[in-house]
Nucleic acid binder design. Structure first.
Lengths: 161, 161
DNA sequence: TCTGTTTTGTTATGTTATAACATACCTTCC
DNA sequence: GGAAGGTATGTTATAACATAACAAAACAGA
């Protein structure tokens, strides 16, 4: 997983994500209904975390205006099937580029441009489980959200380190 | 840092935390005013994350009823000086047992009893920074919140692993 | 004591999330 | 096809979390 460049063929990202979602839902016997698919598309409109109420507005612009529970239910479904991740530190959601693969949601967030990417480092998972185990704690789920500067924004800021 | 036992001398925790806070504020030339100290004490009433509105109610019970901004300002102060941590995944706050020591807020949360503890593993910090650097990303701040079972709750559940 | 700064009070409102119940829609079995 | 039961969506209301904006008070240093 590379950090998404400022300029890239984003329609390819959306397309790939939707395809992967279809496949994953088929595999799980889960129903990717209209709203759920639309919400997933809207989440993928950028690589930035999107809030539920922003999605609500987007839905309105598509002529499918809805109330909050509709969006939250779609988000719950997408979360439950690993198609999106919740970004707790921003009260937002981002699309998962590789649903199905077990991974715990390690997210990089650029403080400058707001773009997000997944880190997905198994060594990190292991280190956390190990470190927790030393305190007698057994891990079931982890939230890792790392803020900093993405490659593009570092270059712009003249950070060459 | 051990995970706090279900039964322990909690007044000692509160006392130690308040003392450490006083010292840290003196060191920094920051003013630990009445409300700020009281809010800190209330955050320390348990080892569980507390929400701002719960603090508000507690303040009311102490005869110091206040409006939300008062509590949020106190929390902002305590956060700014490292006396508490924000628990993003729970919209809550917990006291920091060792303010002053540089550390990035690695938090263990028991899904059963709700208790929280700090992990504070420097190797974890390093692994994250390293792994992010491989994607060209430079880290400034990290949120790590790990959910699972604490030693006490594991024992109760018969988990001997 | 005056002055500028910091802190707190107060009112209003913005933002995020869910409870509770009604309706529609699919599926399967007769 | 039609009834039954589950799943999904619509709708209304409200809970829970957070901040903007301005007024008043408390404090620190000259």
């Amino acid at each position: 997983m590379a950090f998404p460049a400022a300029l890239h063929d984003h329609s390819a990202c959306i397309h790939a994500a939707l395809d992967a979602a279809e496949a994953e839902c088929r595999r799980r016997g889960a129903r990717l209904t209209d709203i759920r698919r639309i919400v997933l598309e809207l989440v993928w409109e950028s690589h930035r975390p999107v809030g539920a109420y922003a999605l609500l507005e987007s839905l309105g612009r598509l002529g499918r205006s809805a109330a909050p529970p509709t969006v939250y239910r779609a988000l719950d479904f997408l979360l439950a099937h690993g198609l999106i991740h919740r970004v707790a530190s921003r009260n937002g959601f981002i699309g998962c580029p590789h649903p199905g693969h077990a991974h715990g949601g390690q997210i990089l967030l650029c403080a400058q441009c707001g773009m997000a990417a997944e880190l997905d480092d198994p060594a990190l998972d292991r280190e956390i489980a190990l470190s927790a185990a030393r305190l007698g704690f057994s891990v079931s789920h982890q939230t890792i959200e790392v803020e900093g500067l993405c490659p593009t924004c570092r270059a712009q800021a003249g950070d060459t380190a």
